[in-house]
Design a protein around this nucleic acid. Structure first.
Lengths: 202, 202
DNA sequence: TGCTAAAGTTAGTCAATCTAACTTTTCTGT
DNA sequence: ACAGAAAAGTTAGATTGACTAACTTTAGCA
């Protein structure tokens, strides 16, 4: 860590990432202005290019931090309800939706289509790590409860359902046709159905 | 319809919408340049403002046309498999995913978060009309097969699952953790489970 | 036919990202 | 300790694309 002086910032890189994280979290990646992050960090708009390739590199870093946050929340959810239990798996699903609701803008950036972003290997790895948690928990549940299905298949189904719920919720598509929907109750009800389901799809 | 001359286009409004539809369909709304649509229609970049409020008004029109396309595909799917049948409902789900895959960019524009776009009433109405089809079919199925649940609740669950599948598929999130997944088979398997499920949430 | 409104045009403003060329500070090796 | 290189800033300007203002051409109608 460098010294802080009038001219040199000290740790501009981190300051820019933090300012950008906040801005994206609040206003979304589409509306994120790098120049605004510069203003907050108190530097010129040319300064970031000493630390980042371009605007997209900052977004990559933000996505990775957001995946870390999601992974943490998932782990906490499981930990508080019990490893390999139905309750724990339901809690993970709810944590996913809660994260999406709390961090709508980040969630969209993480799972939306941003080709350059997604090809970045560290981003892919972080995403995998998140999903691996789900497979593990489902695997434990299946073996402990003599469920015959392939945990991987079941995990994909659960993820699909929960991701759909998160997406429709934050994009306000439920609001149009089902404003009174209780999403958490729906997840609680639907999860056991999917855990019991036989697998077969390729 | 006006006459076509060297100076006046004839029906510039429609020409711009069509060019824009193609451009958005191919490159996505984020990358859509109004100036490119102007080039294709052979007019200056100032011309559109005689016909549209701004760039967003063109996007609104595009979304409505895309909903029409989706509604048509849904109806065709049901019609070919039988009204109120399990087969018909599965076909609707597959049609939804197929549409998303065929028209990824449009699908994202339709269901993503674009506050100005979504508040536009004609857009909301078109979306409702699409979902109403699903409720109708599920309602018919339930009454014909003595399924006790609330068709509306069940329809929401089906939509949630199918929408999650479509989103994860086109955003290439499945590709990262389950590149071998057969999405259509998954839908075929999962739909009956959800149709049989008791309702209670929301 | 001649007025008015519709539908174009050109020229120019305004942001925002990114680059080029320059300046200030920090680090390193002897 | 200090000279020179490298790191980390700066200002100024290129570029790009949406949108506006003021003007011009064409169409429709009494």
């Amino acid at each position: 860590m460098k010294q802080k002086t009038a001219y040199h910032h000290g740790d501009l890189k981190e300051a820019l990432v933090q300012a950008s994280y906040e801005l994206v979290s609040q206003g979304g990646a589409e509306n994120f202005l790098l120049s605004e992050a510069c203003k907050r960090a108190g530097v010129s708009t040319a300064a970031p290019y000493k630390h980042f390739r371009d605007r997209d590199e900052i977004l990559e870093i933000i996505v990775m931090r957001a995946f870390d946050e999601l992974a943490d929340r998932s782990m906490d959810a499981v930990a508080s309800r019990g490893t390999g239990t139905l309750d724990g798996i339901v809690a993970m699903g709810k944590a996913y939706v809660t994260f999406a609701a709390d961090e709508q803008r980040l969630f969209r950036l993480m799972f939306g289509q941003h080709p350059k972003l997604k090809q970045a290997e560290p981003v892919v790895d972080d995403g995998k790590r998140c999903f691996t948690q789900v497979i593990e928990q489902v695997g434990l549940y299946c073996s402990q409860n003599n469920v015959p299905g392939d945990p991987r298949q079941i995990a994909i189904r659960l993820w699909t359902f929960v991701h759909g719920a998160a997406s429709l919720l934050i994009d306000e598509d439920y609001a149009v046709v089902a404003p009174d929907l209780d999403v958490m109750a729906m997840i609680e009800e639907t999860t056991p159905l999917m855990l019991a389901a036989p697998s077969g799809a390729g």
